[in-house]
Computed example of a mutant assay.
Amino acid sequence: MAAGNAVVAKPSELAPATSAALARLLPRYLDTDAVAVVEGGVPETTALLAERFDHIFYTGNGTVGRIVMRAAAEHLTPVTLELGGKSPAFVDRDADLDTVAARLVAGKFLNAGQTCVAPDYVLTDPETAAALEPALVRAVEAQYGTDPARSTEYARIVNERHFDRLTGLLDSGRVVVGGGSDRSRKYLAPTVLADVAPDAPVMREEIFGPILPIVTVPGLDEAIDFVNDRDKPLALYVFSESDGTRERFAAETSSGGLGHGLPLAHLTVSDLPFGGVGESGMGNYHGRYSIETFSHRKAVLKKPLS
């Protein structure tokens, strides 16, 4: 809207309360000739995608992202896709592990892990992993208390389907903390898994939930190779005191964003472009980048006739 567009907004059917709130409030406060809200699921989305738009912006997963791109191709409509993915967090052996643990817990378990830029897994060497485990246990208790189910700061899983998907991943490693669940309340405790194999079920797709696997590699070279052998993530987080280590991740890996020492924070900086690359999406937005994304710079040249 700030770029001068009319908007058709389609909220996710997976969050029906939020969708209903947007459908109720946007027409109340915004010009209905410029903004329309369409609620529904697959049929409504399919019908919308058959229409001709100037731009389509989609946030979600790669499966639906491909559907959006195919539909947009029929009208040669440009798209911006924010698709998430498995965002790694590398922990160097020189890092202050109590600080790292507190920041990982805050970033990973926000909204019960249901954010697109949550640290998906930890990558570190075996000795650091062993020392990080008790630090993560302390950080979870400091953040959510001895019983996170009673914490007013801890969220629930969006629906039963995703609850079942997540609990099915708990056998992928040794439980360091958490692991408890209650399907009737869609509660899954903030959970850390250790001794996780690179091909374990929890490592095969974006977790999008409160499970943090720890995967060990011998060192920095192997960590960079591990990241590069997989789809390009939406975010990559590096916890290291070494300028050389930070520079190597910047130069030798590809990700939508790169955060040093703190997860999620780059998302909140309006001066930074936010978006993915490869499997994690295309295009970017936030601040002036949103205006540029939803605008067309039309070249205009004028030469006097006399």
Results as ranks from 00 to 15, higher is better:
residue 201 P to W: 13
residue 240 S to D: 12
residue 196 V to W: 09
residue 184 S to W: 00
residue 203 M to C: 13
residue 201 P to E: 10
residue 242 S to R: 14
residue 230 R to E: 08
residue 246 R to Y: 03
residue 242 S to Y: 09
residue 233 P to C: 13
residue 243 D to I: 10
residue 234 L to G: 12
residue 202 V to L: 05
residue 206 E to K: 06
residue 248 R to K: 09
residue 247 E to V: 00
residue 200 A to E: 06
residue 202 V to Y: 13
residue 211 I to L: 15
residue 187 Y to D: 07
residue 241 E to I: 00
residue 221 D to Q: 09
residue 234 L to A: 12
residue 194 A to C: 06
residue 190 P to K: 07
residue 217 V to S: 01
residue 198 P to D: 10
residue 203 M to V: 07
residue 238 V to L: 11
residue 191 T to I: 11
residue 185 R to C: 03
residue 200 A to T: 04
residue 203 M to Q: 13
residue 242 S to A: 14
residue 238 V to E: 07
residue 236 L to T: 04
residue 238 V to N: 01
residue 217 V to H: 02
residue 236 L to F: 01
residue 191 T to V: 05
residue 234 L to S: 13
residue 204 R to T: 13
residue 216 T to L: 03
residue 201 P to N: 10
residue 206 E to S: 09
residue 248 R to L: 06
residue 197 A to D: 14
residue 241 E to M: 02
residue 216 T to C: 14
residue 229 D to S: 15
residue 226 F to R: 02
residue 190 P to G: 12
residue 205 E to F: 05
residue 197 A to C: 03
residue 205 E to N: 13
residue 224 I to C: 08
residue 238 V to Y: 06
residue 231 D to G: 14
residue 232 K to Q: 14
residue 210 P to E: 04
residue 213 P to Q: 08
residue 219 G to S: 06
residue 225 D to I: 00
residue 240 S to I: 14
residue 238 V to P: 03
residue 189 A to S: 14
residue 247 E to Y: 04
residue 247 E to W: 12
residue 224 I to N: 03
residue 223 A to I: 03
residue 206 E to L: 06
residue 198 P to T: 09
residue 204 R to Q: 15
residue 215 V to A: 07
residue 211 I to M: 01
residue 230 R to W: 11
residue 206 E to Q: 11
residue 219 G to F: 03
residue 213 P to C: 07
residue 219 G to N: 04
residue 228 N to V: 06
residue 217 V to K: 02
residue 221 D to T: 15
residue 205 E to S: 14
residue 224 I to F: 07
residue 209 G to A: 14
residue 246 R to P: 00
residue 240 S to K: 14
residue 242 S to Q: 09
residue 197 A to Y: 03
residue 213 P to V: 11
residue 236 L to Y: 00
residue 189 A to K: 02
residue 198 P to V: 11
residue 236 L to E: 07
residue 237 Y to P: 13
residue 203 M to E: 04
residue 208 F to E: 09
residue 188 L to I: 15
residue 213 P to G: 06
residue 236 L to A: 08
residue 231 D to I: 00
residue 204 R to C: 05
residue 195 D to T: 04
residue 247 E to P: 00
residue 194 A to T: 15
residue 189 A to D: 08
residue 198 P to M: 02
residue 183 R to G: 01
residue 223 A to V: 05
residue 219 G to A: 08
residue 188 L to F: 10
residue 241 E to P: 00
residue 211 I to T: 03
residue 233 P to G: 13
residue 221 D to A: 14
residue 210 P to Y: 08
residue 183 R to Y: 02
residue 231 D to T: 04
residue 201 P to G: 10
residue 218 P to W: 02
residue 223 A to Y: 08
